[in-house]
């Protein structure tokens, strides 16, 4: 057995965290996307405090100022002003909070509710699985905007409505994907051996199944950030979500659409903010998926 001991001695003792870090370092990081997301998060936390102007500060004399680089623009309003003379940059910074908060709610609630339902459905199978999956099918066949209209009509349109609609719409994604993962995970030999060892269902769930779907949850969540931001913007744009005086990117689009012809920047700037944030989130998500997926880890 000395040979075994010798072979072991040469092995570096590295935990999963060290391995993960090594892997993350190995593939070029999507720096630009991460930087963009970091800026959005800082803006969301800082909010009005970071904004150069009061996001709701009316100044009709300063209405329809173009961005700084355009003719007649001024660096006092780098991205220009809207019809009421409000600074667009300040409003984008203030609106980031709604976008980030709605994304976080969606991820945390939809992820945990959907993830848990998916685990139960996949693990127990049979009639439980059949019932849950039909519920998912039904949920997926209801147009999200129609649902939002109903909820807004019943409870009134506000931030809470946005969150509820997002959770109700997005849990199904988690449930479906997690269920699929569990279906293959529960057939793993180490899960069978855990049963043979006498472990209860709880131990199997939390020791053997949950850690193995964390990667999936993480990747899915990152990829959903983009979708949720666009969804929130759509709801607010339609007047079903955030109401003035609160600021959101969708609401900005909605306000600006009447002045599209004489103030293109008022609708373009929040549009660019949405696009860049979603693009960054998706790129980070793709990168996470490729990095964490064991099948793509080779080479």
């Amino acid at each position: 057995m000395t040979a075994d001991a010798g072979a072991l001695a040469t092995l570096p003792a590295r935990g999963p965290l060290a391995l993960l870090m090594a892997r993350l370092r190995g593939r070029g990081l999507p720096w630009l996307s991460m930087l963009m997301l970091a800026i959005v998060i800082v803006a969301a936390i800082g909010g009005e405090a970071l904004a150069p102007h009061d996001p709701n500060g009316l100044d009709l004399g300063a209405a329809f100022r173009p961005p700084a680089w355009a003719e007649k623009g001024s660096w006092a309003y780098p991205l220009g002003t809207d019809n009421l003379g409000r600074d667009i940059l300040s409003r984008i910074i203030a609106g980031a909070r709604v976008s980030v908060v709605s994304a976080l709610y969606a991820i945390v609630f939809a992820g945990s509710i959907g993830g848990l339902i998916g685990m139960i459905s996949g693990y127990f199978g049979g009639i439980v699985d059949a019932v849950i999956m039909r519920l998912v099918d039904i949920q997926l066949s209801i147009p999200a905007l129609a649902l939002a209209l109903v909820i807004a009509a019943v409870f009134g349109a506000d931030f809470g409505t946005v969150i509820v609609v997002i959770i109700v719409t997005y849990w199904t994604w988690y449930a479906r994907i997690v269920r699929g993962e569990i279906l293959s995970l529960k057939e793993r030999e180490y899960v069978a051996l855990a049963k043979v060892a006498g472990c209860g269902t709880g131990t199997i769930f939390f020791r053997h199944l949950l850690p193995n779907i964390m990667n999936t949850l993480l990747v899915l969540s990152t990829l959903q950030v983009g979708q949720v931001i666009i969804f929130e913007a759509s709801l607010s744009f339609l007047g079903l979500g955030i109401q003035a005086p609160d600021v959101s990117w969708g609401l900005m689009l909605s306000d600006a659409r009447n002045y599209l012809t004489n103030a293109w920047w008022a609708i373009t700037m929040p549009g660019i903010a949405i696009m860049l944030t979603c693009l960054s989130a998706n790129m980070v998500g793709d990168w996470l998926r490729d990095t964490l997926d064991p099948k793509r880890r080779q080479l």
Binding site: E189, Y190, A192, L193, V196, A197, H208
Partner: peptide
Amino acid sequence: RRQVQAVFQDPYASLN
């Protein structure tokens, strides 16, 4: 469960 244990074929799949 305590009296009957098992060893499976694939040592790569049987250890978490």
